[in-house]
């Protein structure tokens, strides 16, 4: 029985014919499958609420983020301050909604940059049979071995002023941080994609596409990449969390956003000294990061399953 596996339950022609009576476009089919993935759907709702919260929240809860009130220091959650206050009596809910915009945007944008760069480099290296592969992998190893903090310092000192001039203070820092984080985190994705490409390009269906006259681009993007996406989606969703944390590291070093902008990472950092007296200060931003990362991971899982027609959902 060389090369044969047990027939799946749906291999019975009669059974399958009944299911796919209605012709649906692949995009719709994917969405239908995604909707059946409960965790992924719940996560989409959670992430949607988080995004909605940080966008429209400041209008619904119009409290200034920098209003100092020494009579209400380190208060726990109450009706006047639903998520409590920090050591300067500032309202944490308002600060989280304001900072969340930046954290979420940085996390998602950095993920997109890292994934795109990683997929491109990995795909080029994986497809090349000559010199591009070793050269690109040397570059990847080089980036992996670079000491990141000194490099960050250098980049930020060199480019901060120019970018500020173009995009404004916050915009400039945002672009800088996204480029820096994305630009230093594409390597795992690239290695993953290359490994997938190396094994997939030898598969018979790719050879079959070549035999039909498919161009290299078509082989890469229609045949190999869709089959390599599963691990890439999982890897890049993890990037979101590390990007949010990396942003707070940068801010702490004074290289990111100014200290008065309360990104989630910054809030966590400020709260660490008061963990025993005011745990709520750390808990809420921590929970927000946790929820974001978790829901993006589950969405990633759901996407991976929905995009793979072999999986029964």
């Amino acid at each position: 029985m060389a090369g044969s596996t047990l027939a799946s339950p749906s291999a019975d022609p009669a059974a399958g014919a009944a299911v796919s009576q209605v012709s649906v476009s692949p995009g719709r089919e994917t969405w239908r499958r995604f909707r059946r993935h409960r965790l992924a759907m719940a996560s989409t709702v959670v992430l949607g609420l988080l995004v909605l919260g940080v966008i429209v929240g400041p209008w619904l809860w119009p409290v200034a983020i920098n209003e100092i009130d020494f009579s209400a220091q380190l208060q726990g959650p109450s009706w006047s301050h639903p998520l409590g206050t920090d050591d300067l009596g500032q309202d944490i809910l308002a600060r989280m909604m304001y900072g969340g915009r930046i954290s979420l945007a940085v996390g998602l944008a950095a993920m997109v940059v890292a994934t795109i760069v990683g997929v491109l480099i990995g795909a080029l290296a994986g497809m090349s049979r000559k010199y591009a592969d070793p050269i690109l992998m040397w570059v990847t190893d080089l980036f992996l071995s670079l000491p990141q903090l000194p490099l960050l310092l250098l980049i930020i000192y060199l480019f901060r002023e120019q970018l500020k001039a173009i995009f404004g203070v916050e915009g400039g820092v945002f672009v800088l941080i996204v480029i820096v984080i994305g630009g230093l985190r594409w390597m795992p994705v690239a290695r993953l994609v290359r490994a997938q490409f190396l094994s997939l390009r030898e598969k018979e269906f790719v050879e079959a596409a070549r035999a039909q006259g498919a161009t290299k681009m078509r082989q890469m993007f229609r045949h190999i990449l869709p089959n390599a996406l599963g691990p890439v989606i999982v890897a890049s969703t993890i990037e979101v969390s590390s990007a949010i944390i990396a942003e707070s590291t940068l801010s702490f070093l004074g290289l990111g956003f100014p200290p008065d902008i309360p990104t989630w990472g910054r809030l966590l950092f400020d709260a660490k000294d008061q963990l025993d007296t005011a745990p709520h200060w750390a808990l809420f931003p921590g929970a927000a990061i946790f929820l974001t990362v978790l829901s993006i991971n589950f969405i990633g899982d759901g996407l991976r399953d929905a995009l793979d027609p072999r999986r029964v959902i």
Partner: peptide, 26 residues
């Protein structure tokens, strides 16, 4: 060309219609 392993020579992410139509479109 027709390949040996019918389980490996079709792209699992592509439905049959697209796979058969591909050489025509290419």
């Amino acid at each position: 060309m027709i390949f040996q392993d019918p389980f490996a020579s079709l792209n699992p992410r592509m439905n049959v219609g697209t796979a058969v139509a591909e050489p025509l479109l290419i």
